[in-house]
Design a protein around this nucleic acid. Structure first.
Length: 683
DNA sequence: AAAAAAC
C-alpha cells in the first residue's frame, strides 16, 4: 500500500537489521508533488540515522536543535505503524495508546503515514487522500504532539488544570457543524490521557452555554465552523483568543477555500496572530483539490509547503471497491419509484442472505438531492408509505428507518437525525450535501444520488460516505433524460457503469403500460403517500428545482411540469411569477403556468391556474386511482394516464420528437471536450 | 425561489 521505493536490497536489509520496519519513500516527484527536493542525497543509511535521531530529540522536547536544521534534513523516512511512534519516541505514549489500545488501530493508512511523518516536522501541508482513509487522525496526531513538544506539562492528565479560553493552541475549521462535532469526538479520544481540553464552537447552539463551558474548562483545541468562530474572535466579551496559536487546520480545505467560504476564512486568518510573530503550522486536508483553489492554497500556506498526494494523477478519486451505477430515467417522476424498487430489492436480498446464514449487509442508504425542499418532499412521501391502504397499514420497508437531514432542521433535530442514522442497522437517510463531506456513518451500504450533482468533487465526496476503511459499498446515480448532457460533462472520467436492472427506470409514466405486479404495488403505495403530503411541500420542491442552474431552462421546466403531472397527478404545474419566467426565458414553454395579476383576474380562474387548492386536492387531482384499474391479483395491470391539463399536449409531442438522438446531437454542439473519455460512452 | 454557514 505504501508507495515505497526500495532502492537496492542491500541497503534495505541493513535498515531492517537495525531493528526497524521503516520504509523508504520514493524520492521521485509525482506530477503534482510540490515537495521541496533536497539538493544533496546522502546515502540511505546515513539519512535514516540522521532523521531518526532528529525526531527523537524533537519528541522529547529538546530545544538543542534549531528548527532550520530539522527542516534541512532529508525527509524520506516514514513510520507506518502507530506503535513505532512510541518506539522511536516520536509521539507521547499517552496519545498513541489511545489509538492502538483504545481504537484498535495499528497500521497507518498511506495518508496517515505520510502526513504524520511530515507534519511532526512542523511544516505546512496540504494532503489529499481518498475518502474514508483516516485523514482526521492524520492531522490530529501530529498536531497534538507538536503542542506537547512545546508544552510537556500537558502530556499527563492532572487532577486540576488551569486552562483558560485564551490558551488555544490549535484551531480546526470544518464546513459543517456535524463534521466539527465528529472531529471533536475524535480529538477528545486522543487527548483523553492528556491535559489538553477540546471545545467545539458551532452555530445553532447556545453561544452563552458554550462560552461558559469554555471559561470553566479552558481550551487548547478548538474545533469550529467559520461563522461561529468569526463571531467569537470578533466579540470582545467572549474572551476567546489565540495568542499562542501553533496549528491551524482546514478540514475539507477545498470547500473552505472556495467561493462560499473563502471570505470567512480570510477574515478569520486576519483575526489570528501574525504568522511572522507567532510561528504556526497550517494543515489543509481534503479528498478533492480542484485546480481552481490551488492559488488560494498557495496564499494560505508557507511557501515551502508539502503537497501530500496519495491519489496519483490518472487514478480514480473514488474507490474501485465501490461499484458505481448510473441509471438514466425518463423523468424526475421516476426518482421515487426507482428508489422504492431498489430499497425493496436490496432489503430482501439482505434478508435472504441472512436467512441462509450467509454474509450480509443490511440496507443502509444515503439518498442525496440537490435541494433541501426535495429532501423534505421525498422524506415526507417515504414516511407516509403504507403496505396496505388505510392509515394503519404497516410501512412497506419496515423495519428500515426513514430519516431526514438538512440545514433547515433545528440543530437539535439535526443532531438527533445523524445520531439515529449512525446507530441504525437499516435506514434511508434523505439528505442534502450537509452530510456529503467527512461525515462517518458506520456501514453505509448504498449512496444514491438523485439528479446531477453540483460538480464532480461533490459526487466524489458523496460516494465517499460508503466503502469507508476496509468496508464495501455501492453507488447509484439517477439521471433524468433532460439532464444527460450536463451529467455527462460533470461526471466525465468517473467509473460509472450503466444499469438497467430496475423496472421503474424504464417506465415512461406518461404512457399506458403493462406493469409487473411488484412495480404496480409500489406505484400504488407511492401515489397514496404522495396524495397525503401537503401541497406546499411539493410547490417548494418544484420551485427549488426551478432555481437551480440548468443547461437548458426550457428543458428543465418541461421536465418539472411533467413531474407535477405524472408524479403528483396535478392538472397544471404550480404558477410561477412573470419576472421569473422572463428571467429564465421560459414564458413560451407549452403548458407553462405563469402567475397573472390577481387584481384584474377572475379569482376562480386564477385558482385553477394555480392548481387545486389544498382543501380540494383530493377531488381535483387526476391521479390514477389504483381502484379504477381493479385489483385482480394478476401478474400485471394496466397503468394509464391521459394528457389533459398540460395545454396543447405539449409533453406528448415533445417526448416523441426528442429521442436520445436529439440529446446526442445537441450535446455534440455544446461540449468542447473530447468525446472519447470514459463518461461519454456511458449514457 | 440553490448546500452551507452567526446572532
Amino acid at each position: 500500500m505504501f508507495n515505497a521505493c526500495r532502492r537496492g536490497p542491500a541497503s534495505l536489509s541493513r535498515v531492517l537489521r537495525a531493528g526497524s520496519t521503516l520504509h523508504l519513500q520514493s524520492a521521485r516527484p509525482s506530477t503534482l508533488s510540490l515537495i521541496t527536493q533536497c539538493a544533496t542525497k546522502p546515502s540511505i543509511e546515513s539519512r535514516w540515522v540522521h532523521v531518526a535521531s532528529q525526531l527523537r530529540q524533537q519528541a522529547t522536547g529538546a530545544q538543542s536543535v534549531p528548527r532550520e536544521s530539522v527542516q534541512n534534513q532529508q525527509q524520506n523516512v516514514a513510520v507506518t505503524k502507530f506503535q513505532e511512534l512510541i518506539d522511536y519516541n516520536l509521539v507521547h505514549p499517552n496519545v498513541v495508546n489511545e489509538i492502538t489500545r483504545g481504537m484498535g488501530l495499528h497500521t497507518m493508512t498511506e495518508v496517515q503515514s505520510k502526513t504524520i511523518n511530515q507534519a511532526l516536522r512542523g511544516d505546512d501541508i496540504i494532503a489529499q487522500a481518498r475518502t474514508g482513509t483516516g485523514k482526521t487522525i492524520g492531522f490530529l496526531l501530529p498536531m497534538i504532539q507538536n503542542i506537547l513538544r512545546e508544552n510537556p506539562d500537558f502530556a499527563t492528565r492532572k487532577r486540576y488544570s488551569r486552562a483558560r479560553p485564551s490558551d488555544i493552541r490549535s484551531i480546526i475549521i470544518s464546513p459543517t457543524r456535524e463534521l466539527a462535532e465528529q472531529i471533536a469526538v475524535e480529538a477528545e479520544k486522543l487527548c483523553a490521557n492528556t491535559d489538553l481540553r477540546v471545545q467545539v464552537a458551532v452555530g445553532g447552539n447556545s453561544k452563552r452555554a458554550m462560552l461558559r463551558k469554555m471559561q470553566m474548562e479552558g481550551c487548547h483545541l478548538l474545533v469550529a465552523t467559520p461563522g461561529r468562530l468569526n463571531d467569537l474572535l470578533t466579540d470582545p466579551y467572549s474572551r476567546v483568543s489565540a495568542p499562542k496559536l501553533t496549528t491551524l487546520v482546514l478540514d475539507e480545505a477545498d470547500r473552505l477555500l472556495d467561493d462560499g467560504f473563502s471570505k470567512d476564512i480570510e477574515d478569520i486568518i486576519q483575526l489570528l496572530p501574525d504568522r511572522r510573530e507567532v510561528e504556526r503550522q497550517t494543515l489543509l486536508f481534503s479528498a478533492t483539490v480542484p485546480k481552481e483553489v490551488m492559488h488560494l492554497v498557495r496564499r494560505t500556506l508557507k511557501s515551502n509547503f508539502h503537497f501530500v498526494q496519495t491519489v496519483q494523477e490518472g487514478q480514480q478519486a473514488t474507490h474501485e471497491k465501490v461499484p458505481q451505477r448510473i441509471v438514466t430515467i425518463p423523468g424526475i417522476e421516476n426518482y421515487l419509484p426507482c428508489l422504492l424498487e431498489l430499497a425493496k430489492r436490496e432489503i430482501s436480498k439482505a434478508a435472504e442472505a441472512e436467512a441462509k446464514g450467509a454474509d450480509f449487509k443490511p440496507f443502509k442508504a444515503i439518498v442525496y438531492f440537490n435541494s433541501t425542499a426535495n429532501v423534505e418532499l421525498a422524506a415526507r412521501i417515504f414516511e407516509e408509505l403504507r403496505a396496505e391502504s388505510g392509515a394503519f397499514g404497516r410501512h412497506p420497508l419496515h423495519p428500515t428507518e426513514i430519516i431526514e437531514m438538512h440545514s433547515r432542521l433545528t440543530q437539535e433535530r439535526r443532531t438527533r437525525a445523524s445520531d439515529r442514522f449512525r446507530r441504525a442497522k437499516s435506514a434511508i437517510l434523505f439528505s442534502t450535501d450537509v452530510t456529503a463531506r467527512g461525515m462517518h456513518f458506520p456501514n453505509v451500504s448504498h449512496v444514491i444520488q438523485m439528479g446531477t450533482p453540483p460538480n464532480q468533487e461533490q459526487y466524489v465526496h458523496r460516494i465517499g460516505r460508503t466503502g469507508r476503511a476496509d468496508q464495501t459499498g455501492e453507488g447509484f446515480i439517477f439521471i433524468p433524460e433532460h439532464e444527460i448532457p450536463e451529467a455527462r460533462r460533470r461526471l466525465r472520467g468517473l467509473p460509472v457503469s450503466p444499469d438497467k436492472s430496475l423496472e421503474a427506470s424504464k417506465l415512461d409514466m406518461s404512457r399506458e403500460a403493462q406493469l409487473p405486479a411488484g412495480l404496480a404495488t409500489s406505484l400504488d403505495q407511492l401515489f397514496a403517500a404522495v396524495k397525503i403530503v401537503d401541497r406546499d411541500t411539493k410547490i417548494k420542491a418544484y420551485m427549488s428545482c426551478m432555481g437551480q442552474p440548468a443547461a437548458s431552462p426550457v428543458d428543465n421546466v418541461q421536465a418539472l411540469n411533467r413531474w407535477t403531472k405524472f408524479g403528483w397527478g396535478w392538472p397544471a404545474p404550480p404558477a410561477i411569477s412573470q419576472s421569473m419566467a422572463m428571467k429564465l426565458n421560459i414564458s413560451r414553454v407549452p403548458g407553462i403556468n405563469i402567475q397573472r395579476n390577481r387584481l384584474f383576474e377572475d379569482r376562480d380562474a386564477a385558482d385553477d391556474l394555480n392548481g387545486p387548492s389544498r382543501s380540494r386536492e383530493g377531488r381535483l387531482d387526476n391521479f390514477p386511482d389504483s381502484r379504477k384499474f381493479g385489483r385482480g391479483g394478476d401478474s400485471s395491470r394496466e397503468f394509464g394516464r391521459d394528457s389533459r391539463g398540460m395545454g396543447r399536449g405539449g409533453f406528448d409531442r415533445r417526448d416523441r420528437s426528442t429521442g436520445r438522438g436529439g440529446y446526442d446531437r445537441r450535446d455534440r454542439g455544446m461540449s468542447r471536450g473530447s468525446r472519447t473519455d470514459d463518461a461519454s460512452s456511458l449514457f
